[in-house]
Design a protein around this nucleic acid. Sequence first.
DNA 1: TATGAATGAGTTTTCATTCAT
DNA 2: TATGAATGAAAACTCATTCAT
Lengths: 199, 199, 199, 199
Amino acid sequence: MYAELSPSAERICQAAILHFSEHHYASASLNEIAVAAGIRKASLYAHFKNKDELYLAAFNRALAVELEHVQQCFAETPASQLGFHYCQSLATRYTQAPTLRFMLLAAYIQPASLKVALDEGYEDYLQLLRDRFSAALVTAHPALVPHPSLITQFSTAYLGIVDSLHVKLVYTNGQEFQGRLAALEMLLITSLQHTLHSL
Amino acid sequence: MYAELSPSAERICQAAILHFSEHHYASASLNEIAVAAGIRKASLYAHFKNKDELYLAAFNRALAVELEHVQQCFAETPASQLGFHYCQSLATRYTQAPTLRFMLLAAYIQPASLKVALDEGYEDYLQLLRDRFSAALVTAHPALVPHPSLITQFSTAYLGIVDSLHVKLVYTNGQEFQGRLAALEMLLITSLQHTLHSL
Amino acid sequence: MYAELSPSAERICQAAILHFSEHHYASASLNEIAVAAGIRKASLYAHFKNKDELYLAAFNRALAVELEHVQQCFAETPASQLGFHYCQSLATRYTQAPTLRFMLLAAYIQPASLKVALDEGYEDYLQLLRDRFSAALVTAHPALVPHPSLITQFSTAYLGIVDSLHVKLVYTNGQEFQGRLAALEMLLITSLQHTLHSL
Amino acid sequence: MYAELSPSAERICQAAILHFSEHHYASASLNEIAVAAGIRKASLYAHFKNKDELYLAAFNRALAVELEHVQQCFAETPASQLGFHYCQSLATRYTQAPTLRFMLLAAYIQPASLKVALDEGYEDYLQLLRDRFSAALVTAHPALVPHPSLITQFSTAYLGIVDSLHVKLVYTNGQEFQGRLAALEMLLITSLQHTLHSL
DNA sequence: TATGAATGAGTTTTCATTCAT
DNA sequence: TATGAATGAAAACTCATTCAT
């Protein structure tokens, strides 16, 4: 997925993730990242060609961590939960994991030069979510198997719900998160029941 | 709602809205705004005390425009549409109206010094949406009137859907917007039918 | 001594004196002066050609006020006081009269373009002091009349004492002013006695 | 007394002393200092965090030089000179040593943010002068030892004389310096004789 | 006489990047 | 691999001055 890094580069990357989770690309300071990593600014360039490359490396690392978290969430819950365990995890994760904050920031506000690469990365994240949700959906409700368009529709809705929750986290630091989650979960569950009934 | 501006200040404000819709606060350039408005950088300061004040003035203008758009959308459609006409309008509006792009950017990524003012503004926007949706909901389905908690739940879900669509616009410039809208609309509609049935 | 000014110009001048007493030429702001005078910055130029001219006008006014104060001090005290009533007055005057603070600031720190004019003005002030002190000295001690060089020497010393007190005011806001005054007055008085004895 | 500086920082500091001796804090230009030191403006910030820090560093250096000069002057003259060798040295020193000009300017006109530090520095200078003068006084006239209040009074007067000479240097570039020095020295000497006689 | 608007020149400061060591 | 020093470019902001009204 991404290049192996030397221990020093790894340390820089961690500092960068933390910094980039609080300052978007343009207002992030390489100096602060370097100091946080225990080196001087000029030394960064021994590890990364420039700001773009460091940003990308940090993003890929953050992304990998979040992908792993998705995997775990879906692995440790029964299919009947339909991905809402992951939704539930987002609130505390957002406050505790800079990787999530960084990934969302990077997905929403991109420097033009990195737009393509960042979009692709975030698409990977969404695709994984879609796959896991779809799998859980058909496992929990095998009756849907003959209706792939319904599966698509519900998983598309699920992705929409996740993004909606992300937004709540980003712009209000999580207030009212639970209310929105409950309302949207209710929507999906009842809609699903309705749909299953009418099959 | 906001102070009247002189013609020059108005021109600057329009240029600022356009610029701020493409560059968040920290990476926006007063120089570029000035040039776009046909004046020199120093002349800005005859109209606005500093970057913060210009940003706020531009934000309030953009917000007013978006509030007006919400009003119109809900006014020109039957209640049975349940706010989905507004949702539908978002895709083209996002590409054509810098006011919407700016409002979203300002709501998601805020300079610390303006956080409170910007949050309040965006809350106004959300509150208006909630009010209009609730009104349409009870108009279209009077049976819900005795169940205020359901009204709250559906309108909370509606706001979540709107935010979710915003995100699709922001991070992919609208690709797959229609798919997400269809899926979430389906969710709400079927869930609503289900709920109405079981009353 | 200086041109008559219109009432508006007079008001500006007063505001300028106050402002210049707190900010030396280079860091003074015409805008602040204008606002303090109740007009806009551009209107200053209807009364004074530029910053230099306003500065000079204000200086000349301040100087005139201080000259008048010197006159009064010497007029209202017996010659035997030998100018120490004026010295004594300096401490409270410095805190209360912006004219004194401005005159000293302008005498010590001058913009190159006004050096000559300001120096001349301050020389007038010193010359007046010298004249008054000399007059008092010969009045109090007629025995000195045949020794003009002694009169010169003592009045030169007196000017030195006044400047020394000014400095104490300028750089420590008057702490220890009384101590210095007492010490220098003692010096002059005993020296004078000694000199008179040996005539 | 103050931090050791790298050779480059030292060069910058020298340029700063020269510049600050001619322009007080607010009207000094970092650009001119940099150019005088043979570098570009931005490079200053590799050596000093900001204007304040550079100013303070330069001031401390200038102060140290002046303290050293005081030491030397008193060391190389017999006590009977009573500090007037130092007074004599001031005239040429003022024209030749930017350190003296800078120290006086910084003592009289201070940026608010540095007031405390600069005052302390200048107090050190005055204290050293007082100590040296007192020592010379009692060495030359042991009869004063039992009268500490007289010693205080004469040294206070001495400091007043030094300040008075400074002023002459500052506001007239030294014209009439000799006259003032002679007059004030006469004052102190005759007053001292008178006092000694009457013990 | 007053002023709103405009501006060129200047200010301090930050930053990503380079390069010799 | 690390870094001190240097720098061009850019940032926000201030100011004295001008000019049409």
